[in-house]
Structure formats: C-alpha cells, structure tokens
Amino acid sequence: MSTVDTVAAGQRAATAAAATAVCCVVRDVVKTYRVGRGTKATQVRANDGVSLEIARGEVFGLLGPNGAGKSTLVRQLTGLLRPDSGRIEILGHDIVRHPDRASRLLSYLGQESTALDELTVHLAIETTARLRGLSATAARATTADVIDELGLGPIAGRPLAKLSGGQRRLACFGAALAGMRPLLVLDEPTTGMDPVARRAVWSAVDRRRSADGTTVLLVTHNVIEAETVLDRVAVVDEGRIIACDTPGGLKAMVDGSVRLDLVWRDEAPTTLPLVAALATRAAVSGRRWTVRTDPGEARELVAQVTAGPAFAALDDFSLSTPSLEDVYLLLGGRHEGLEK
C-alpha cells in the first residue's frame, strides 16, 4: 500500500469514526403552519432553517421559551410531522423519507398523557413495552425494573388520571424508558415534578447513558435544568437556533457581565433619583428588578442602594454570575418565557 493510500485510508477511517459518533443530523429544516381559516389565515414559521448535529451518548438540549419552535422540531424528529423542506437523519436513517422508522430508533415522551390516563401506572408501562415490540415476559420484567428504578412502586396500581401532575409525568417517563432505544427524546420531562422525582429522572438518564451510550434530546424552558444536566444546548428563539454550545461555552459569551437582582418589599421607591435612574434600564418582573452590568458598576450600585434610603424599601438583593437566561437575552431572545 502506498503512502497516499495509507493516508487516504486513515482519513476514511477518521471520517467514518466521526460519522458513527453522530446520532442525529438536522439540516435546514423549515416547517410552517397555517393559522386561522379562509382569508384570515396566516403562515407561521415554526422552524425557520434549523440545523444541528447531536453526538452519540450526548445529552443535548433545546432551550427556549414557549412557542419558540422546540416541540415542532422534536415532532419532526420523531416522525410525527413532516418538514416542508430540509433533512433529518437519525442513526443513519432518513426520517423525512421514512418517518415510520423513528419509532424503531427512539423513545419519545410527549407533553400529553391522554392515551395512558386511565391505565394504572403498571399497565401503562407494560402496554407501552409490548407496543415497543417486547415479548410478554420481557415487557413484564422491564416494567418491574422501571417501576423499581423510578420509585413508582407505591403508585403502581393507581390510574394515571388519579395522580398529581408530577407523578403522572414520572409514570409517562417510565413508559418512555420501557424497551431500549438508542435515542431518548424527552419533551419537558420534569414539568410539575418535585426534586425527588427530578433526581430520579436524571439518574435514570445518566445510567442509560453510561451503560448503553444512550443519546438524549431534551426540550426544556428551565434554565437551571439546562445548565446542570446538558452537555450541549441549542438556544431556540422564534423558530431559529440562535446559539449552540456547551452551557459553559455559552456563558463565556457574556463573561464580564453580572446580574444584580433587587426585590422591593412593596412599590419601588421611584421618587429616589438613584432608583428612578435604575428604572430606565432594569428588566421588571413584578417586584423584582434585574440589572445587567459590569462587576465594577454592580458593586457601586449595591453600595449605593444598601447605604441610602432605598435600602428601607428593599426586601432582598443578589449579585450573580450570568446564567443561560442572560445568554438568551444577549443573543436577542425575547424577555419572558424562560423558567429559572
């Protein structure tokens, strides 16, 4: 074999290795909806040229406010919706051309549980396992494992409709875990869950990732969750991906700025010149004012607010390093919608 051949073979092997490391490729996906009827109908671009790549074994997140287009994108990945244009590949399979293959590659936890609501937790998981192609024996075994793993034992015999929102969500997550798939697509899995249930979810995800190399695509509008559990995150706003990096990498974009939160006891004392000046640049959410600035000015502001007459009106204040929410805002995202 000549040197050229050896190099070429080496390159091919490297490319193949890179290729096998990819779980999911999305290229220029566009999806529009018609809203309204007749002459009043308008077109809404839910996804406006979305491209992203997810590596195998990665916990990848889509972060954005409600209505940003996250769920629409996920519904196209799961084969439930067909994009107007663009390409979607999962583990080497063209999902636009063969949407039916998605169900044999991934496990999906949607936002709705109506199909399972009147079943008991046990039966919901076991039936889902059966419908994912498991034999009766395997379905029973996996159901017992999942119930045990998620601590669903005490509520296993109760219908989902009778459970609290968080418990119901956990049971549906259990159904999504029944039957192994290399990709887990979870649309806001922890909505309404208490911290114990959230921990159970993330432990289960971690176990599958380390044991089987499972890839996870997570839709969330919870900033803390995104920062703590995701390897990489795509920030979605108005149908576009406005940034995609590790949470740390994204936060480095806003390095050098800090956030000052002021919570007033009652009305903000805007008669004071200092507070009136702040009012023009603060993001106001109820009694909470948020000011983004450089650390030097932030220190000065804290000193002024806490030393002067404004302090009497202050309930709480805090200085913090930037979060993904700050990144989202810096990148031009709309203000409301992310959960802290």
């Binding site: 084969g79 169900s103 949607g110």
Partner: peptide
C-alpha cells in the same frame, strides 16, 4: 375524538405498532 384533539395519538404513533 378526544385522543386526537388532545395529542394522545402521538403516544401510539411513536411506537412501532
């Protein structure tokens, strides 16, 4: 009708059944 209106069909549609 309810299953379709509330998105419950997604559960079955994302299973290889």
């Amino acid at each position: 009708g309810k299953l379709r209106a509330t998105g419950g069909l997604d559960h079955y549609a994302t299973l290889p059944v």
